[in-house]
Write a protein that binds this DNA or RNA. Sequence first.
DNA 1: CAGTATCCCGGACGATACTG
DNA 2: CAGTATCGTCCGGGATACTG
Lengths: 130, 130
Amino acid sequence: MCDGYDPAKCTTVSEMLARLGDKWTVLVIMMLGDGPQRFSDLKRMVVGVSQRMLTLTLRALERDGIVERTVHPTVPPRVEYALTDLGRSFSVPVKALGGWVFANHEDIQSARARFDERNAEAGPKLIKLG
Amino acid sequence: MCDGYDPAKCTTVSEMLARLGDKWTVLVIMMLGDGPQRFSDLKRMVVGVSQRMLTLTLRALERDGIVERTVHPTVPPRVEYALTDLGRSFSVPVKALGGWVFANHEDIQSARARFDERNAEAGPKLIKLG
DNA sequence: CAGTATCCCGGACGATACTG
DNA sequence: CAGTATCGTCCGGGATACTG
């Protein structure tokens, strides 16, 4: 993929992957898939997210042009978040990836079971990551 | 995507995304795309990776059934890593995602530039994640 | 060669308190 | 309501040294 070799683009790929890999980004994108949502609604829908992390996640997505932030100057303030065209476009390959995991869930689980079985008796080793 | 709602599958999606989001997984998968590679060859190809992280990354991928580890009982030892069928299948949506970033690189960069421009004068704020 | 063991640091993330 | 500021914890990941 990074064969034609544009280092800048490869860096961006890593950045977007890291973004997807963080704890809340994909959930937020999914919740915005059905239309715009207010901050507090998102906070309720994305169970477990802290105010801080929701803000951070939305800011990062806004910076990348995936999400658009609209402030309605009312009292109390009303802020809506929506996917941009770029965001909706982005969600296509993201959903494809999610779909792949759904489709291959059995294979993954059985592979893990076999691995854990084989390495059952072994000592503590350094099996981390996960 | 997680609408039909199988919590176990959604958890697996998060796990695989977290895996992709870590620092070396995608690079390793790409390097194995052209065929099997020895541990030390991978270490040379994936520039900057430490022995520890390469081992950890490969172990996690092996556990998930994405990569297969073959030990040739010679002296000195020869260990080869290769993508499994599942791994090659997995790399399809992964490459699609990478391809999307390549195709939309301009849009992302300009979105970032505009965001940073708008928030130039502002104080330190809490803009992290990135 | 292909690991494993240990130490260490920075940053992701959570909890809490405060504000326009 | 929609944030921001601050503090503390945990762990991803790097550096180094050792081994079959």
